[in-house]
Amino acid sequence: MTNPNKYRLRRTMMFLNCQKPGLIKDPYIYKPDSIMLDLEDAVAEREKDAARYSLYHALQEIDYRGVERVVRINGLDTDLWREDVRCAVAGGCDSIRIPKTETADDVRTVEYAIAEAEREFRRPEGSVLLMAALESARGVINAMSICDSSERLFGIALSGGDYSKDLQISISGTGVEFMGARQHMIIAARAAKVQCFDTVWTNLNDMAGFRKEVEIIHSMGFDGKSIVNPRQIPVVHEIYTPKEKDIIFAEKVIKEIDQKKAMGIGVFTVDGKMIDIAFYDGAKRTIALAKASGVYKGDL
């Protein structure tokens, strides 16, 4: 059975360093959809053990009020990740993020360790979901097979810092260097029916640039963006909330298609636009997103 959280709303995923109690004690006040409790890059090498103890007790004792708790484990090229998985699953995390994913086998390796941990800590089988961060040219090229690798996998995320290093380029702020990866990843994710998330924007002094980037990735079809500061959350949520005119149009499309289908009519117009069955799923998604964003007041 598919985990009911697999397709939950994930517009914002806020990175938090597990080593910093001040950061992980109450991030829910900023209302991100997900938090990314980081055991990897943000944690100093000699504090990896300390970060795990903090993570375990935070997961056990802090009420994150419905915010999804994703744990970023250390890379598969370290001797840390297996214990990270045990700690995260024992603590009760919702999902695990695999960094530097390059192949479908990487996902299956972690999936196996999660299943073992679920048995060890008596958690229901399949209760912990997975996402894969693609941080290299090879990872991006293999996006399709990675997306198809596991029933637990809810999505893939672009990690721009490492990806740009692998491509031997620097981040320009225009997004031009990520165009190919973004387009390829969103197509693969849609083909596999999983979600797709964009990389972080680290220049906190350039909120206009951030807004522009979110508008671009939203129009490309990304489900959400990784976040490094609470100030970025309302911008993303605003852009991802359907506008009233879009909601009204989507309602009309759904109702008209339902009605016309019963009458045997396949093509018709709504507000002057030619509509057929191909518009149905998009309209349904708009209504679902409006409901999830708390702005839908209709009866669908």
């Binding site: 300390a50 103890y53 935070a58 802090i62 045990r86 700690c87 800590f121």
Partner: peptide, 25 residues
């Protein structure tokens, strides 16, 4: 918070005892 006090005491004790390997979560 209580959860932080526990985590720090455990971590310090494990380090002081030279504990390595799997943790009894």
């Amino acid at each position: 918070l209580d959860c932080t006090i526990k985590a720090r005491v455990e971590c310090a004790a494990m380090r002081a005892a030279d504990h390595e390997g799997r943790v009894n979560w």
